[in-house]
Design a protein around this nucleic acid. Sequence first.
DNA 1: CGTGTTATTGAAGTGTATCAAATTGCGTGG
DNA 2: CCACGCAATTTGATACACTTCAATAACACG
Lengths: 226, 226
Amino acid sequence: MAKHHSHQDCDVCPTRAQNPVCSVDGALSRVQDVRTTSRYSAGQVIFYAGNDPLGLFTVQTGLVKLEALSPEGDAHTLRLMGPGCILGYRALFASEPYRATAIAVEDSQLCFIPKTEMLKVFEEFPAVAMNLAKQLSVDLRRAEEKWVQQIDHQAPSRIAEALLFLTDHFSTQSWTRREIAEWAGTTPETVMRTLSTYEKQGLIALDGKSIRILSRPSLSEKAHRT
Amino acid sequence: MAKHHSHQDCDVCPTRAQNPVCSVDGALSRVQDVRTTSRYSAGQVIFYAGNDPLGLFTVQTGLVKLEALSPEGDAHTLRLMGPGCILGYRALFASEPYRATAIAVEDSQLCFIPKTEMLKVFEEFPAVAMNLAKQLSVDLRRAEEKWVQQIDHQAPSRIAEALLFLTDHFSTQSWTRREIAEWAGTTPETVMRTLSTYEKQGLIALDGKSIRILSRPSLSEKAHRT
DNA sequence: CGTGTTATTGAAGTGTATCAAATTGCGTGG
DNA sequence: CCACGCAATTTGATACACTTCAATAACACG
């Protein structure tokens, strides 16, 4: 409900440099006056699967997840986007509706650029499109890797990998068993049992809901075994 | 061994129109004199995972698979490319080594354009890069869908989906149990058992190695159930 | 201070991988 | 052209990892 819209100076935007759009010479000023800032509280939806793309979002602060919901109702986390990451480019390039729902994991501030403006930017600054194509290529590699891992590695292995990935990339976040399960392609119960095992083995320390990693190497070892 | 290189007129190329590169005005003539044609027999490798990208391939005739090999030695088919499809763009855009090995499924003829030339083409004809970005976007959707299906759907369901997809897109090919398994993320034995069941139910007909689909609707129904 | 969510562990059920063995089919070379 | 060998097919038996269901405990929240 608390969704504020406002204009704000790109000069003070902390994500300007590492952003695939704004880091391109000239593109920033082109985009400056057509953009909007929106705030979302944790749990709020940014866009829904099935809808047509509106434009491009950039995460300025906070954390956003792309989640696919199965007909039976269980969620799967496809991608996670922190500050500097773009949101909505896949649907835009493919001219397809969104295939997943974007949800704020924690309180987040996003920057929005309408679709029609973005198409103009692509024409004026091909480097922007190239940057996004590079991002798509990395996303594709990760997605295909994830499928392969889902087949080759057992749940404990995938959970170890999830722990490493999530703490590596989003260390501030305190992840719930459910969130880890939705990322690792398993259930909260299996995550729990695995965490208990890893705790007994001294790889991690559990204190209530918080998980502290004691031995990255050993966890990494688990992640790479079947 | 029987790998022939030759120059050949793009005018007679059957895949020119639906090809993301050559269909762009002007790009064809730009590419015409830097391209090469290569022939591969079924089973031959076009490039290996781990190597740096050489350039872009186009499938003119035949069928090529992108396959990831697990450390334990079992293969997974990531993507399949028929006539008109491009090969090697993900690694090129990402500036990464190939993550998968490309193998000719049947005797195939490919067109090759070196990396340095492609980069020039991207600058001269941004529409080419846009077309490939669109392709990447579709690939990404499919890859993410595949991961979700791997979790949500049981083997019989995924096999039904595989049968439909493979016959839809590559109807000429006669698929082995192993190839279906590598696409569906399961084992040849499970594919076999499932095929037997589907035959008993009258959904398909098995005659030796050949599989004939008797009821697409019923198979589709199976594919969408858990 | 309840109420709903998360954590935690147990017990049961089952889908599917794995191993094994027999049969069929196919390509290759003698 | 046949015979051989190797790969693909087919079916059975076994094992087990993981989901599912369930029940309690700890916690966060308005």
